[in-house]
Design a protein around this nucleic acid. Structure first.
Lengths: 141, 141
DNA sequence: TTATCTCCTGCGAACATTCGCAATTATATC
DNA sequence: GATATAATTGCGAATGTTCGCAGGAGATAA
């Protein structure tokens, strides 16, 4: 099963309706760039069909994030970048300047997860977290 | 020297101009709630003077965040909460269910900061980060 | 004090995102 | 296939925040 078919299947199994809009949005997100803005997804879907509204794109992306199927990263300029969650926990490093993304080992965070749990009784969502910063290339500027 | 006088002094020493607007905004932020929205700061200042514009509030809050004198936390609903930085960097724990916030020791992250730097050449912004999760109260539901 | 040089502010428009509501439609049931 | 019903969509307006630009005013030095 392709990645985006499995996303659709998961939504359906959880009782959400699969509309043409949702299918197209998921396909655009799963096949496109690693991190896309809502506007990019909208433009992408729009090329295939007129039957799509920007508000629906936002609502669907929110749904995917809420169900844990996608992640949202807020950039410095206030825009949000979305991406589907692939397999297993990982850590995204997103450059504040150029929006390049890198993947780091999620096990880095496992100590912290335990400390937050035992010391603050807080169950943090660290499975698919994104950390914002500055990458090597953009360091100089 | 009071807390807000020292904030003003720091700005001045760094070459920024001290305008009545900036003074009032800093006073409102330093004396008010621990975490205030831009709108709250605006309303607060407005009671003292008409000579204030919401865009200026945002610009001044941004300036304070950029210079490290204040921190900004993005809530789940997209609103930003601002607070002056009192004692060093800290870590916000935000509950995904009830939006309650807790403060944790930021030193938890210093190891990770170094690993990201040495292993990935990535300079992460971990000074005033917010982690989302579920708090003790909401655990059951 | 005055002049000069930038920085800063106010305004209104633009931006990214969310909301409320009526109309539509996916799904389950017959 | 037809029907009922509740989730989903599209629309336009509202939200929180940022931007561009022209005018206003701190800071500095003479």
């Amino acid at each position: 099963m392709t990645h985006c078919a499995s996303l659709i299947d998961t939504l359906r199994r959880r009782g959400f309706r699969i509309t043409p809009q949702r299918e197209m949005i998921i396909q655009a997100l799963a096949h496109g760039n690693a991190h896309a803005t809502a506007e990019q997804v909208y433009t992408d879907v729009r090329q295939r069909s007129q039957a799509i509204n920007l508000a629906t794109v936002y609502r669907t992306l929110d749904l995917l994030v809420d169900t844990g199927l996608a992640s949202r990263v807020l950039m410095a300029d206030g825009q949000a970048l979305y991406s589907t969650v692939q397999h297993g926990p990982h850590l995204h490093l997103v450059c504040r300047q150029c929006a390049a993304t890198f993947t780091a080992d999620a096990s880095l965070l496992s100590d912290i997860e335990q400390v937050l749990e035992s010391k603050y009784s807080f169950q943090a969502d660290l499975q698919h977290i994104s950390l914002v910063g500055v990458c090597e290339k953009c360091r100089g500027s």
